[in-house]
């Protein structure tokens, strides 16, 4: 519903402003060029997106995805405190984080939802608000990415000299944003361990 309003508002805005500034011809032309650009965009990122989905499948089948998940255990303990004691929750959180790290947001959602469900069960059992779930959601909205493959594909398609030269900047920015999100959640929760 929100997106419907956003789209309607944008169309209204461009019509009113286009009429006021006398740029209606350009606005009209934009309906065609925008649609064409959407196809170009998909062509630019589609191949890379499929390639990494394929590689992710190899990682899952070879057990490499689980290995990566195991490497994340200390971080999960640090963030989720006592919730990390639970095997089911820990495994699902690890899988969710691993998919996020590879820049595969859509592959991260199923494991993320599984983790959220488990975390909620755990807090219901203790009779407390599901702070673990809130933390997991913030972690997913902050997007901890190591390989932003889609963005790199976009840059490559537009003729960037080295599509992946943004990596260090993405890491720095991601790390700061995740840290800020985690700290904000902790402060607003009233501090203390989970």
């Amino acid at each position: 519903m929100l997106m419907s309003r956003v789209v309607a508002l944008l169309a209204l805005l461009s019509l009113v402003l286009g009429a006021l500034t006398g740029r209606m011809a350009q606005v009209s032309q934009a309906t065609v060029s925008g649609a064409e650009e959407a196809v170009r965009l998909l062509l630019r990122i589609g191949g890379t997106l499929c390639l990494w989905n394929g590689l992710m499948e190899v990682m899952v089948q070879s057990g490499l995805a689980k290995k990566v998940a195991r490497l994340l255990q200390p971080l999960i303990r640090l963030l989720f405190g006592s919730y990390a004691e639970d095997e089911t929750a820990r495994a699902a959180i690890a899988q969710n984080m691993a998919a996020n790290l590879l820049g595969l947001g859509s592959a991260a959602t199923p494991s993320g939802l599984r983790a959220a469900k488990r975390l909620r069960e755990l807090s219901d059992r203790r009779g407390v608000p599901p702070h673990g779930v809130f933390l997991l959601i913030v972690l997913n909205t902050a997007s901890l990415q190591l390989l932003p493959t889609t963005v790199a594909a976009l840059r490559a398609g537009l003729g960037a000299a080295q599509p992946y030269d943004i990596l260090p900047a993405v890491w720095l920015s991601s790390a700061v944003s995740v840290t800020v999100g985690m700290m904000a959640a902790r402060l607003m929760r009233g501090g203390g361990r989970l």
Partner: peptide, 14 residues
């Protein structure tokens, strides 16, 4: 597609 058309229109309008 939806967003690109909408955003391109808004940009064209100034």
């Amino acid at each position: 597609l939806t967003m690109l058309v909408a955003v391109t229109m808004v940009r064209a309008s100034g």
